[in-house]
């Protein structure tokens, strides 16, 4: 189990657009909500009313600030982070029980909640912080790519997508088969220069991030500066008003 499949027929994953994400947390709470009652339920919280409320979340939104090279201008980037369903993830191979596995069919990396012993080694092996331990359940939790939604026949076909993708109000999250070059997500990655996180770690993430686009704050091509005031602005306006009357 802990051995990785040689290949997977599909490479299902997410493409997250950092140029569009506003950091609204919809994907995070929708994920928590679906997955606390779906596969591997629940995601139990600690100290919910107290000083230190915390619990497992399968998707978290970071906020980073990027300075321009001149150190002055900057941009805030909201950065959702969940399991990247890597192609060669050590989180799976280190698992002593076989609870962690990668599905041969679609590449989804899952944890079997019935066999996980909660040793946490897989969370150490994940560079992306995607695995979170559930103290109350005593097992590891991670993004399931909503495996219990995407094939769920109780949903209308258009709802068969991850909870986070369905929720995202800006449409910054995309779901699809990244193994298929012609899929919409693959095209998007190509067009927008989608990239891998920490590629040198060799985990080969399936999920891709689309970079924030270059800012368009320089004058757009074809826009001419407005004429500067030369004291005759009133005249110009009068002429304009005149033209209106003559219908030109």
């Amino acid at each position: 189990m802990t051995a990785l499949p040689q290949t997977t027929s599909k490479k299902l994953g997410l493409v997250i657009d950092l140029d569009t994400c506003v950091g609204c947390q919809a994907c995070a709470t929708s994920c928590k909500e679906w997955n606390t009652q779906g596969y591997s339920a629940p995601l139990a919280d600690e100290d919910t009313r107290g000083a230190d409320p915390h619990g497992p979340w399968l998707n978290r939104i970071h906020g980073y600030e990027v300075e321009d090279t001149n150190g002055k201008d900057s941009r805030v980037v909201h950065f959702p982070r969940s399991c990247l369903h890597c192609e060669t993830p050590a989180c799976v191979t280190v698992c002593p029980t076989g609870a962690s596995y990668k599905r041969a069919e679609d590449g989804i990396v899952l944890i079997n909640p019935d066999t996980c012993i909660g040793c946490k080694l897989c969370s150490w092996a994940c560079p992306y912080g995607a695995r979170e331990y559930d103290v109350q359940e005593g097992v590891m939790k991670k993004c399931t790519l909503c495996v219990d939604r995407i094939y769920n026949e109780n949903f209308e076909p258009e709802d068969r997508q991850p909870a986070c993708v369905k929720a995202c109000p800006t449409g910054a999250r995309h779901f699809g088969d990244l193994g298929d070059e012609n899929s919409a997500v693959s095209q998007l990655v190509k067009e927008r220069g989608g990239f891998d996180l920490l590629p040198e770690m060799g985990y080969k993430p399936t999920n891709k991030y689309l970079p924030p686009r270059a800012k368009r704050d320089t004058p757009q091509a074809g826009i001419e500066a407005l004429p500067k005031g030369d004291g005759s602005a009133m005249d110009r306006l009068f002429k304009l008003a005149d033209r209106l009357l003559s219908g030109n």
């Binding site: 980073y64 990027v66 920490l198 040198e200």
Partner: peptide
């Protein structure tokens, strides 16, 4: 920058959650 793909001049602006989570506690 490598982790986020956001280049050399990136710094954390806001934590995802204001109390520490498992990953922060463990790692």
């Amino acid at each position: 920058g490598d982790a986020t793909g956001l280049g050399d001049h990136v710094r954390q602006w806001e934590v995802p959650h204001t109390t520490k989570n498992f990953v922060q506690r463990e790692m």
